[in-house]
Design a protein around this nucleic acid. Structure first.
Length: 877
DNA sequence: AATATCACG
DNA sequence: ACGTACGTGATATTT
């Protein structure tokens, strides 16, 4: 045996609980399908992999305290008070973390009676003796006392969301804290550490402690010169509490000579990416960590059933057989081979996946004889059969194929969204894993993936429908979401016409004004800089010009509009900047931005997304047509370029306060219902009742306040939020809320009920059964939980409004079609519909809109849709 | 890829 | 003591 076998080898020692703890508080809550919280484990692994890559150690060991968290020294009960028990969400992750590490073949040390600190301290000392380079990873600065020239302490810090690691060799400790690692113990002993139950010496804090130890090197030496100690306060304290100081030092000192069984060879890093670890990572759903594994996942048996079809006769036979099946899964395989990434939208097809049984899974290839057009036609005619066609994104598919029987179509994407609307993306692989227990290797060739996708669609139809039924969302799916797919498809195909040259003119006018403002700002600032950079702007305003600064963000000074607005009256440069910002936004996002989306037909065909929002609303992208300016006149002008085609006008219909009306209905509050049955101006009525003022005498201020309260209620009221909105104190805001609830006690009961329901069930739902899970409600973090409570109050209302609008859209679309009208829906903005209306059809369209919107749901209060028309969107609002 | 800002309901 | 209103998406800048 080589005596010096560990010489110059590197070992990484990890303080397990400390890193888990860091990760837990630094990473937003994650849970896997089993409901197990996973964020701390995920964060731990990310830090681990990062440090392994940076350090490339040969050895690795993770130390844990035996009882989590152990109190450093149980005998000093008095000082335990400040440490809180570990959050349940973290506690449950600890054993799993250990299992994961074991699965990766990583050595874990834990020993009753010894803290992780002591284990690490001892191992680092032993390692150093062996001639090893030691790296200690911990979130805890206590370990800095272990630093030497060969022992490096690494402390991860979450800075602005990213983890950065601070490194300390002995010299770095000295540089930063002015004392050696050894002396660091004495500093800590003097100042104390409540989180570690170290009492310290009263009235000595960090500053004094450091000063004393810098001068005297140790507590003992300081005590022997206690009469000379400055300040006198410290001298007195040390004299009186010397025993306390000595005890604290004992507490703060990490044991580097502990006795426990360990051989360095046990920490040798082998293959971390074992099959067992892979299975853990899958179970924990660490998808982006799975890529690190190079394991051959055992090919699923089902792959033996995949058939590639290249002959037309065989393809015909497959389609014929498929037409007789109860359900057919379809997948499109894009030919991305010969296409630049930029044009991947235009990529042709290389094949189509068709699956309608466990042994009926095909990939039909395109070729010279079987063209893309041919295959798409075959799929289109398949949609005439009695088979249910199951696909991933029906609206996208409808750009290629027609669907003859919408009622026989199943959109897996939409179904998966309803079952869990919180996911940021829905992918075939995930769905297969989550609902079918089928693990698809990501690195398969395209042909196999296509077969898998078709097969997944085939099987998911049944499973997801069953789940929808179980969750009581089948009607929502069949009667709202699936029909809406076709309504949205029509809207996207129709697009909206844009007056391109007018848009260009608007843009260049903005450009001129921006240039002017830019000059004026540089003039006032006496320097040039990038006004668009909040960082540079902050420096110019608050350092160079020394304006009073408000909030500081993590990165610097906030230059957000609400801060600048307070300064604007006193500083002309600030109002110029605000104006500049406004114009820059209009030009970049709207004038230039929209121009980029105008198609050859002179129209913008945006995308309306049905599977994005947590509440059930639709979202709009490429471009976003739901945030076109309206509040400021200058921005509102952009709506003049949204025009109908010749012979048409715009009819615009919007719901009047739909969310508050839903609140009235759902809460059943008689006073609120009565208010809506009576009057037009709900904010004035609210003001009158809340402030006990006759309706006619309500002041503008009272009405404004009441309006803010009404909004606040819908958002999930908090006195803080309301106080911000109204620029009043929290106390005043709280009083408004109290008075509101006194006036409408039913509303209070309803909102409380929603929160209680959410806590009980983990989700809330709309009157149409749409669910929104709220994992935050069970968080131990006050802020997260409060957020969950607001969500529980808001989602059923916002979601029901979305449901009602969807119903209206479907019915309006059907009514237009069934009457053979040319008019079409072109844009939806949550509570508003824009209809490009043939001039002769204006009256009937208005009638349809009013009828379908106002009767989309039967509430205890009237639903009101206001209508107007014009020759541009600007005029029609 | 993340952050700050700002447009809408 | 904590530190927020609910729901989105696009842009420019910076890492």
């Amino acid at each position: 045996m080589n005596e010096r076998q560990y010489e110059n080898q590197k070992i990484l020692l990890i303080d397990g609980h400390s890193i888990l703890n860091r990760a837990f508080y630094g990473i937003p809550d994650l849970t896997n399908a089993e409901g197990l919280h996973t964020n701390a484990i995920y964060g731990f692994l990310n830090i681990l992999f990062k440090v392994l890559e940076e350090e490339k150690p040969e050895y690795l060991t993770v130390a844990f305290d035996v009882h989590a968290p152990t109190f450093r020294h149980e005998m000093f009960e008095d000082y335990k008070g400040t440490r809180k028990p570990m959050a349940e969400e973290l506690r449950q992750q600890v054993p799993v973390m250990k299992e994961v590490l074991q699965a990766m073949g990583i050595r874990i040390v834990e020993q009753a009676g010894l803290e992780a600190d002591d284990l690490i301290g001892t191992l680092s000392k032993r390692g150093e003796k062996e001639g090893m380079n030691v790296v200690v990873l911990s979130g805890d600065r206590d370990l800095l006392q272990l630093a030497t020239e060969k022992v490096k302490i690494r402390i991860p810090k979450t800075k602005q969301g990213r983890t950065e690691v601070e490194d300390y060799l002995a010299a770095d400790v000295k540089e930063k804290y002015q004392v050696t690692p050894q002396e660091f113990i004495d500093v800590k002993a003097l100042m104390g550490d409540s989180s570690d139950n170290i009492p310290g010496v009263p009235s000595i804090g960090e500053k004094t402690a450091t000063k004393i130890i810098v001068e005297y090197g140790s507590i003992e030496n300081a005590y022997s010169h206690v009469e000379e100690l400055k300040p006198p306060r410290a001298a007195k304290a040390l004299k009186e509490h010397y025993d306390m100081a000595q005890m604290s030092k004992a507490l703060a000192t990490i044991n580097v000579d502990a006795d426990f069984p360990y051989e360095f060879s046990e920490g040798k890093i082998g293959n971390l990416y074992t099959q067992e670890a892979y299975e853990y990572f899958q179970r924990l759903q660490f998808k982006n960590l799975l890529g690190r594994f190079d394991v051959e996942s055992p090919a699923n048996q089902i792959e033996d059933q995949f058939r590639e079809i290249t002959k037309e006769e065989e393809a015909e036979a497959v389609f014929e057989k498929a037409a007789g099946a109860p359900c057919v899964g379809i997948a499109f395989e894009k030919d991305t081979e010969n296409v630049l990434p930029l044009f991947k939208d235009q990529a042709g097809l290389s094949g189509i996946g068709v699956a309608f049984g466990e042994d009926q899974i095909y990939n039909i290839r395109t070729s010279d004889t079987m063209t893309e057009t041919y295959l798409l036609e075959k799929v289109t005619s398949l949609t005439e059969s009695r088979a249910v066609i199951s696909m991933f994104d029906v609206k996208a598919a409808m750009k290629q194929i027609q669907i003859r029987k919408p009622e026989n179509t199943f959109d897996v994407h939409v179904a998966a969204y309803l079952l869990n609307p919180l996911k940021s993306a829905y992918e075939t692989d995930d769905i297969a894993h989550e609902y079918l227990d089928l693990n698809i290797d990501e690195k398969l060739p395209a042909e196999k993936k296509t077969c898998y996708e078709a097969y997944t669609m085939f099987r998911a139809e049944k499973v997801l429908r069953e789940k929808l039924r179980e969750y009581e969302m089948e009607a929502l799916f069949d009667e709202i979401e699936m029909p809406l797919v076709f309504t949205l498809s029509d809207m996207e195909k129709a697009g909206v016409r844009i007056a391109a040259d007018q848009l260009k003119m608007y843009g260049s006018e903005l450009g001129d004004k921006i240039e002017e403002l830019e000059k004026e700002i540089y003039d006032l600032a006496q320097e040039t800089f990038n006004i668009n950079s909040p960082k540079q702007l902050g420096v110019v305003l608050f350092e160079h010009l020394e304006l009073p600064h408000g909030k500081k963000t993590k990165t610097g000074y906030s230059t957000a509009a609400d801060i600048l607005e307070k300064l604007a009256p006193d500083y002309p440069i600030v109002s110029k900047i605000l104006e500049y910002r406004q114009l820059a936004k209009l030009k970049s996002t709207y004038a230039d931005g929209l121009a980029n989306f105008i198609s050859d037909d002179g129209r913008i065909h945006g995308t309306f997304n049905q599977t994005v929002t947590a509440t059930g609303r639709i979202s709009s992208t490429e471009p976003n047509l739901q945030n076109i300016p309206i509040r400021m006149e200058l921005g509102r002008l952009i709506r003049k370029v949204f025009i109908p085609e010749e012979g048409y006008v715009f009819v615009d219909a919007d719901y009047s306060q739909i969310e508050l009306r839903i609140l009235a209905h759902c809460s059943g509050d008689e006073a609120l219902i009565h208010a809506y049955q009576e009057a037009q101006d709900i904010h004035r009525i609210t003001a009158s009742q809340v402030f006990h003022t006759p309706f006619e005498e309500v002041t503008d201020l009272q009405r404004r306040n009441a309006k803010a309260v009404n909004f606040g209620i819908v958002y999930g009221i908090s006195s803080f939020g309301l106080s911000q909105d109204l620029s009043i104190t929290r106390k005043e805001a709280g009083e408004y809320i109290d008075r509101y609830f006194e006036t409408y006690p039913g509303v209070k009961a309803y909102l409380d009920g929603e929160v209680a329901f959410g806590k009980e069930n983990g989700y809330v739902k709309t009157m149409f059964g749409r669910r929104r899970p709220i994992p935050e409600l069970s968080s131990s973090n006050f802020m997260q939980r409060s957020f969950g409570e607001r969500v529980a109050m808001n989602s059923p209302i916002q979601g029901a409004a979305a449901d009602i609008m969807k119903i209206a859209m479907i019915r309006v679309g059907r009514a237009l079609r069934s009457r053979g009208l040319k008019s079409r829906i072109v844009i939806q903005v949550h509570d508003e519909l824009l209809i490009e209306t043939k001039k002769e059809e204006v009256e009937i369209v208005k009638q349809i809109l009013k009828e379908e919107m106002e009767h989309a749901a039967d509430l205890r209060v009237p639903l009101i849709a206001d209508m107007s028309q014009g020759s541009s969107w600007y005029e029609a609002k």
